[in-house]
Design a protein around this nucleic acid. Structure first.
Lengths: 237, 237
DNA sequence: TCAAAAGTGTTTGTGGTACACCCATGG
DNA sequence: CCATGGGTGTACCACAAACACTTTTGA
């Protein structure tokens, strides 16, 4: 855990040194539910390093944009959507993560609703949705970043209502349950699931039904005024 | 939330541009319990900008150190300790956070055990412990960073056993409870606290007692092999 | 009338919460 | 012997978990 570098004493004040050999990028793990699968939008690299390998979208942070603006720009360029859940994930800064030189990346993750503007980005030709459960060979440390995003999403799902951000505006309870099952990777009990989600008072009926095979299903929407965070069970009272 | 900047289309590959106008620093919120108070180590700035204001320790990330190594170096320079809980907090990158130019900072927080090497850093002359509950006027966005660290620590305390990292090697249950109360800012029930912490099996008796005023107290230590994470109560089963 | 999915209650167990008194020591 | 902090048990309630059948529609 400790650096083998010499400790050079007190940190010098670098008040007037305003360029840096350290390169900053922002990368975004863009997640969506497709075909009962949790998928991530990947782009195939056309230039070295890691030519031909898959990467998560992103690029150099611009001097005139904040980190979140950079992430939002990447998201807009790749999917065309903007009004989605976007959250900073972690900053990766291993010395050897980019063979071209020292680069740190501030990783974000975004949850985009299923049917909306999937794949509408302007340079989406090389972009593809792929299952997070079967990642291809990836560039840099991007596999690690995607797995970190999955871990975080699962974790958040257990105590917040962030799951709705992956569904369309209105949805059935079965749809919602399938979404949870897809992300958590386990089967859930239908009756318990329905009771708890309805008791949480984060949903409201639209009054509409969705017909198809079988009995028509009540449609719900997420309540805008809902406080969708549950108090975690405390280790100590 | 959205940038007003023009979208310039696909991200250009900047394969060979290896300098940047963006400056990267690493800052560390160093926390310790002192006198039943949660305190943070601050340094007084001696140069502009924010001359005379208090800041959390940190400085430019070096090209030859990882983010964590940079945080560890700062910690070592200021306190002399290294074997402590150190965790990345968040990366702050607002456009105007440093008047000298575009700077992003990767913030870490560290929990140092109470009696160990407090204040032993080599240039600690200007460094002081101050209560997180009564922060002085601070430089940059450092007040925000400290408050973010406090929020994270409280949050983590509820489902992991990080609290031990703020105590000496051995401690009494009352000491531990006081630590939790200090951090969470609320009174806890003594019997429930003891039952739950002992049921969690993260402690072991040392066999020793600490005498002083009143009845001698059993000393405990944190079990190195303990899995100190509790499963959060899930919103959905 | 059958297939397919929606919808619905009860029981049992675990764990969270609230609460008050005796114990061991030093002065 | 008294002040000071250490240490202990129980009763109630809420919620998590397990579990199977009926209802409604379209083909």
């Amino acid at each position: 855990m400790l650096a083998a570098k010499p400790a050079v004493g007190a940190e010098p004040e670098r008040a007037h040194e305003r360029t840096s050999e350290i390169f900053v990028t922002v990368d975004v793990v863009i997640l969506a539910l497709r075909d009962d699968d949790l998928q991530v939008l990947l782009v195939k690299r056309k230039t070295p390093p890691f030519e031909g390998k898959w990467a998560i979208p992103g690029g150099a942070l611009r001097v005139d944009e904040s980190l979140e603006e950079g992430a939002m720009r990447t998201l807009r360029e790749k999917t065309g959507v903007t009004n989605v859940h976007l959250e900073q994930l972690y900053t990766f800064g291993a010395l050897d993560r980019d063979p071209r030189g020292r680069t740190i990346t501030v990783a974000y993750y975004a949850l985009v609703p299923t049917p909306l503007t999937v794949h509408a980005g302007r340079d989406a030709a090389d972009a593809q949705w792929q299952s997070v459960y079967a990642l291809p060979e990836m560039a840099f440390d991007h596999a690690e970043i995607v797995n970190y995003a999955l871990k975080r999403l699962r974790y958040k799902l257990e105590y917040t209502a962030v799951g709705f951000r992956l569904l369309p505006e209105t949805f059935t309870l079965s749809q919602l349950q399938r979404a949870y099952e897809t992300i958590l990777g386990e089967k859930l009990d239908k009756r318990n699931f329905r009771r708890r989600i309805l008791q949480a008072r984060v949903l409201e009926e639209t009054g509409e039904f969705r017909t198809g095979e079988g009995r028509p299903a009540r449609l719900y929407r997420y309540r805008a005024d809902a406080v969708a965070e549950i108090k975690a069970r405390r280790l100590f009272p």
